[in-house]
Design a protein around this nucleic acid. Structure first.
Length: 261
DNA sequence: ATGACTCCCAGTGGGAGA
């Protein structure tokens, strides 16, 4: 089973890119971030025509998430973090019914950017992360096979940053954000990317400005975290830079993982 | 060449992203 996450930075603009990547890479499940579409505008018909079941949760201009699955539809969908009052559409979760074994719980999330330490947006990011951790801990008690994936807006370690000195203490790289990432890991989750030897300087996001992609100046901020029960079943994880080379690309590249399910 | 973005909603600029 192949799982993927991609911040598409406007699904209205990126639908052709998405359909092309899905046809080429044939994942079984993909979660999307920054769809930037109200629910009435979600391209459900186009995706269905391509063979995809979908759950979606969006708003205009900003944010917006979706969860697509091929073959079986996901059930028990949840929008945002239960009990956390949030005006921003950032989380979609659902369960992929078992094909022999136990169900697979999938959480797709668009973590807040946070802007800069000391701002209201950073405080919101911290509150959101607190709520997410408490909820994921609860989900794990019900779903031992769980995947948390999406745009975390956190570079977990210096090796996930093209220029750690320049980024030290900056948004995505603050000790507070990294502590939150570790707190998620300590729930019994594993960064699928780091389960394998990886080429150095492989990022998931490059700034549109300053020819950052051409110079490979990026960050690894999009992640797939798998639960303890899934860890031994993960057979591969990588980041596909190819869509970042397309015409009018998203600033993020898709991350994917193979799980023997 | 020591520069250099893209999205949205607005409306011919500004905020946000990361």
């Amino acid at each position: 089973m192949k799982l993927a996450t991609w911040n598409v930075n406007s699904l209205a603009v990126r639908l052709p890119h998405l359909l092309a990547w899905l046809a080429e890479q044939q994942p079984d499940v993909i979660v999307l971030q920054e769809t930037k579409l109200t629910d009435d505008k979600f391209p459900a018909a186009e995706l269905q025509a391509a063979g995809w079941h979908a759950h979606w949760f969006g708003q205009r201009t900003y944010n917006g998430v979706a969860l697509l699955s091929r073959g079986a539809a996901c059930v028990d969908a949840t929008r945002n973090i239960p009990g956390f009052d949030d005006e921003q559409a950032r989380v979609i979760a659902a369960t992929l019914p078992a094909s022999g074994g136990a169900d697979l719980r999938i959480i797709g999330a668009y973590f807040p950017n946070g802007q800069a330490p000391g701002t209201d947006k950073f405080a919101y990011k911290m509150r959101w992360l607190d709520a997410l951790r408490a909820w994921v801990a609860d989900e794990l008690t019900r779903h031992p096979r769980l995947v948390l994936m999406g745009d975390f807006n956190i570079a977990p370690e210096d090796r996930d940053v093209h220029d750690p000195a320049a980024w030290a203490g900056q948004i995505h790289c603050t000790p507070e954000e990294r502590a939150h990432f570790q707190a998620l890991v300590q729930l019994g989750l594993h960064d699928a990317f780091r389960l394998f030897e990886q080429p150095p300087k492989l990022w998931s996001w490059w700034d549109y400005r300053n020819l950052a992609f051409r110079k490979n100046q990026g960050l690894r901020i999009d992640h797939i975290l798998v639960s303890d029960a899934l860890k031994p079943l993960v057979t591969a994880c990588s980041i596909d830079k190819a869509p970042r080379k397309a015409e009018r690309p998203s600033d993020h590249a898709p991350v994917w993982a193979e799980i023997a399910l």
